[in-house]
Amino acid sequence: MTSFSTVEQAAELPIREVARRTGFSRATLRYYESIGLVAPVARDDSSGHRRYDERAVQMLEALACLRTTGMGVEAMRAYLHNMERGHVAAADQRRLFEEHHARVMREIEQLHTRARYLDGKVRLWAAREAGDADGQAGAIEDLGVLTEALR
């Protein structure tokens, strides 16, 4: 969590500063507000520009962390709803994160399979380049297995 000076704590932040702090683009911040993921943001009376209070910024920083894990909007919405419910929603929060963790682990396994396939292609072409018939045959065999795993 970022620390603020007394002046910054009292001030509301413009969208450009919130984008910098969260890593979200300005368009994403506006989109999250438009779909109700983020509560309507106060506007400056004179300019109409969005002004985010510290509570909103902290919530957006938490959402940015979740988004970085690949969590989708609906899961983030469930997370926020559970946060509002407090400790009684602990089991629901745990399940939400267990499900997301399992999804991420499946994605990691898919990435490992893709990496093994690419390694097989490297070995195949290196064997062809070197005129190594045995190396080429072994790479083709491995690629056959991996091709099935990629489907």
Rank of each mutant, 00 (worst) to 15 (best):
G72W: 11
V73W: 09
V73R: 12
V73P: 11
V73N: 10
E74C: 10
E74K: 08
E74H: 14
A75N: 05
A75E: 09
A75Q: 10
A75M: 08
M76Q: 11
M76F: 09
M76I: 07
R77G: 04
R77I: 03
R77E: 02
R77C: 04
A78F: 07
A78L: 14
A78N: 07
Y79E: 06
L80W: 04
L80S: 13
H81Y: 08
H81I: 03
H81F: 04
H81W: 03
N82M: 06
N82G: 04
N82F: 11
M83W: 02
E84K: 04
E84D: 03
E84I: 02
R85H: 05
R85N: 03
R85M: 02
G86I: 00
H87C: 02
H87M: 03
V88D: 00
V88P: 05
V88A: 04
A90Y: 01
A90E: 03
A91K: 05
A91C: 01
D92N: 02
Q93D: 09
R94A: 07
R94V: 01
R94S: 10
R95I: 04
R95D: 13
L96A: 03
F97H: 05
E98R: 04
E99P: 02
E99K: 02
H100E: 00
H100M: 00
H100P: 01
H101W: 07
A102Y: 05
A102F: 12
R103Y: 11
R103V: 07
V104A: 10
V104L: 13
M105P: 07
R106D: 12
R106H: 10
R106W: 01
E107S: 06
I108V: 02
I108A: 02
I108H: 01
E109F: 02
E109V: 02
E109Y: 00
E109H: 02
Q110C: 06
Q110N: 12
Q110G: 10
L111G: 11
L111S: 12
L111W: 07
H112L: 01
T113C: 07
R114Y: 10
R114F: 09
R114H: 11
A115T: 09
A115S: 08
A115F: 08
A115C: 09
Y117Q: 12
L118C: 13
D119A: 14
G120R: 11
K121W: 14
V122Q: 15
V122K: 14
V122M: 15
R123V: 04
L124V: 09
L124E: 15
L124A: 09
W125Q: 15
W125A: 15
A126R: 15
A126D: 15
A126Q: 15
A127T: 10
R128V: 06
R128Y: 04
E129F: 14
E129Y: 14
E129T: 13
E129H: 14
A130E: 08
G131P: 06
G131T: 01
D132C: 07
A133H: 00
A133L: 06
A133G: 05
A133K: 00
A133V: 04
A133M: 03
D134M: 01
D134P: 01
